[in-house]
């Protein structure tokens, strides 16, 4: 069973919508048993880093999530803020993240960008895949994805970097460490590229 974690900080309906389109059953839940019974998890998220962590703490799901992801090692996919929360900490807030992937979340540096680039990065970017991954198997040519973000993942271990994109300069667009995946973009709003990615995730 694929469970989309509902910790009241995400736009999860469009994720379920796309999964339905490609014939994959999922449930949206904030119940411990639905996470215990899951064989894979999607971890969505929209909003600020601290808001996300607070909502997650309030949900009381962190310990069961730690167990499923770090001990049972089931596949988990973080999307947007959900991906950022996999890291250690963020320039956006004070709270600690889940720390599942050794990365810090940093703000786009305006001084490194041409003047006509505005923050947030809102729009489509092509990605450059940095290592072999089942998440990007048989992806249509020149995959592009929809991004909306002011902060991005800065991986401390180069081997965790799965894909990068460019917005004024190169930044990390996706990370992968063992069973843990995080994508800064929104596959659920990225046409056939997103569909393929979500389909791939359900086969990992």
């Amino acid at each position: 069973m694929l469970t989309i974690i509902n910790y009241k900080a995400g736009n999860f309906h469009s994720i379920q919508n796309m999964l339905k389109k490609i014939g994959i059953k999922s449930i949206i839940s904030d119940k411990i048993e639905d996470i215990e019974n899951a064989d894979r998890l999607i971890f969505p998220g929209v909003g600020s880093f601290d808001y996300g962590m607070q909502q997650l703490e309030k949900s009381g799901l962190i310990s069961v999530l730690n167990n499923k992801v770090l001990v049972e090692k089931i596949p988990v996919l973080g999307i947007c803020l959900g991906a950022q929360l996999l890291g250690n900490k963020s320039e956006e807030g004070e709270m600690n993240g889940l720390g599942w992937i050794n990365m810090d979340i940093v703000k786009f540096k305006k001084e490194k960008m041409p003047d006509n680039y505005k923050i947030p990065n809102m729009g489509w970017n092509e990605i450059s895949i940095k290592k072999e991954s089942s998440l990007f198997t048989k992806m249509p040519q020149n995959p592009r994805f929809y991004f909306v973000h002011s902060f991005y993942m800065q991986a401390n271990e180069k081997s965790d970097i799965l894909a990068t994109a460019e917005y004024g300069y190169e930044f990390v667009a996706a990370v992968e460490k063992d069973n843990i995946f995080g994508v800064q973009f929104h596959p659920e709003k990225s046409h056939k590229y997103g569909m393929k990615l979500l389909e791939n995730f359900t086969h990992i």
């Binding site: 309906h13 919508n17 796309m18 389109k21 909306v148 659920e188 990225s190 046409h191 997103g194 569909m195």
Partner: peptide, 8 residues
């Protein structure tokens, strides 16, 4: 429309 829009 939302259920058919796989773009923003």
């Amino acid at each position: 429309i939302g259920s058919e829009a796989f773009m923003p």
